Deep mutational scan, measured.
Amino acid sequence: MEVRTIKVFTTVDNINLHTQVVDMSMTYGQQFGPTYLDGADVTKIKPHNSHEGKTFYVLPNDDTLRVEAFEYYHTTDPSFLGRYMSALNHTKKWKYPQVNGLTSIKWADNNCYLATALLTLQQIELKFNPPALQDAYYRARAGEAANFCALILAYCNKTVGELGDVRETMSYLFQHANLDSCKRVLNVVCKTCGQQQTTLKGVEAVMYMGTLSYEQFKKGVQIPCTCGKQATKYLVQQESPFVMMSAPPAQYELKHGTFTCASEYTGNYQCGHYKHITSKETLYCIDGALLTKSSEYKGPITDVFYKENSYTTTIK
Rank of each mutant, 00 (worst) to 15 (best):
E2V: 10
E2R: 11
V3Y: 13
R4I: 14
I6W: 07
K7M: 09
V8F: 06
V8N: 04
V8R: 04
F9L: 11
F9A: 12
T11W: 06
T11C: 05
V12R: 08
L17R: 11
T19N: 11
Q20N: 11
Q20L: 08
Q20R: 12
V21C: 15
V21M: 15
V22D: 06
V22N: 05
V22W: 04
M24R: 11
S25Y: 09
M26V: 13
M26G: 11
M26N: 12
Y28L: 12
Y28G: 03
Q31P: 06
F32Q: 09
G33D: 03
P34Y: 12
P34N: 14
P34R: 10
T35S: 12
Y36P: 02
Y36N: 05
D38K: 09
V42H: 12
K46E: 13
K46L: 14
K46C: 12
N49K: 13
S50M: 14
S50Y: 11
E52F: 11
G53Y: 12
F56T: 05
F56M: 11
Y57G: 06
V58C: 10
L59M: 14
L59D: 14
N61C: 15
D62P: 06
R66K: 14
V67R: 14
E68K: 08
A69C: 14
F70Q: 09
Y72S: 09
H74I: 06
H74R: 10
T75G: 05
T76K: 09
S79W: 08
R83K: 13
M85A: 05
A87L: 07
L88I: 06
L88H: 05
H90G: 11
K92V: 09
K92W: 04
K93R: 13
W94E: 05
W94T: 04
Y96P: 05
P97L: 13
P97G: 06
V99L: 13
V99T: 09
G101S: 06
G101V: 03
L102H: 07
I105N: 05
I105H: 04
I105A: 06
A108S: 10
D109N: 09
D109H: 07
C112W: 01
L114P: 05
T116V: 13
T116E: 04
L119Y: 02
T120K: 04
Q122K: 02
I124H: 01
E125N: 12
L126C: 10
K127L: 07
F128H: 03
F128T: 03
N129P: 04
N129V: 08
P130S: 06
P130N: 05
P131Y: 03
P131F: 02
L133V: 04
Q134A: 12
D135A: 09
A136P: 02
Y138V: 14
Y138S: 13
A140P: 02
A140T: 10
A142G: 11
E144Q: 10
E144T: 07
A145T: 03
A146M: 06
A146Y: 07
N147C: 11
F148L: 12
C149M: 11
C149L: 09
L151G: 02
L151Q: 02
I152L: 08
L153V: 06
Y155G: 01
C156M: 14
C156P: 04
K158I: 05
T159E: 14
V160F: 02
G161H: 04
G164H: 01
G164Q: 03
G164E: 02
V166R: 01
R167Q: 00
E168C: 07
E168S: 13
E168R: 12
M170L: 11
S171W: 15
S171G: 09
F174L: 11
H176R: 11
H176F: 12
N178C: 10
N178V: 05
N178Y: 06
D180E: 11
S181D: 14
S181N: 11
C182N: 02
K183S: 09
R184F: 03
V185F: 01
L186Q: 13
V188D: 06
C190G: 00
C190E: 00
K191G: 13
T192K: 12
C193L: 02
C193D: 01
Q195L: 13
Q195G: 08
Q196D: 08
Q197R: 11
T198L: 13
T199H: 11
L200V: 13
L200H: 14
L200C: 11
K201F: 12
G202T: 01
V203R: 13
V203C: 10
V203N: 06
A205G: 01
V206R: 02
M207L: 07
M207H: 07
M209G: 10
G210F: 03
G210Q: 02
G210R: 02
T211P: 02
T211Q: 07
L212A: 04
L212V: 11
L212C: 08
S213T: 01
S213I: 01
Y214K: 02
Q216D: 14
Q216K: 14
Q216T: 08
Q216W: 03
F217Q: 01
Q222N: 11
I223N: 04
P224T: 15
C227W: 01
C227R: 01
C227E: 01
K229G: 15
A231Q: 02
K233D: 01
K233Q: 14
Y234S: 07
Y234I: 11
L235Q: 00
Q237E: 11
Q237P: 01
Q238C: 01
P241I: 01
P241G: 09
F242M: 00
F242G: 04
M245D: 01
S246K: 00
P248T: 08
P249R: 00
A250N: 11
A250D: 10
Y252F: 12
E253I: 09
E253A: 12
E253W: 07
H256F: 10
T258E: 15
T258W: 03
T260V: 15
C261T: 02
A262L: 00
A262T: 00
E264W: 03
T266Q: 12
G267V: 08
N268Y: 12
N268F: 11
Y269Q: 15
Y269N: 15
Q270H: 10
Q270I: 08
Q270F: 06
C271G: 15
G272D: 00
H273I: 03
H273M: 00
H273L: 02
Y274D: 00
I277V: 11
S279V: 06
S279T: 08
K280M: 12
I286C: 01
G288Q: 00
A289H: 15
A289I: 10
L290G: 12
T292G: 09
K293P: 11
S295N: 07
S295V: 11
E296A: 15
Y297A: 00
Y297R: 01
Y297V: 05
K298I: 15
K298L: 15
G299Y: 00
P300L: 08
I301N: 00
D303A: 01
F305D: 07
Y306M: 00
Y306Q: 03
K307T: 15
N309G: 12
S310Q: 15
T312P: 09
T312F: 12
T312V: 14
T312M: 14
K316Q: 15
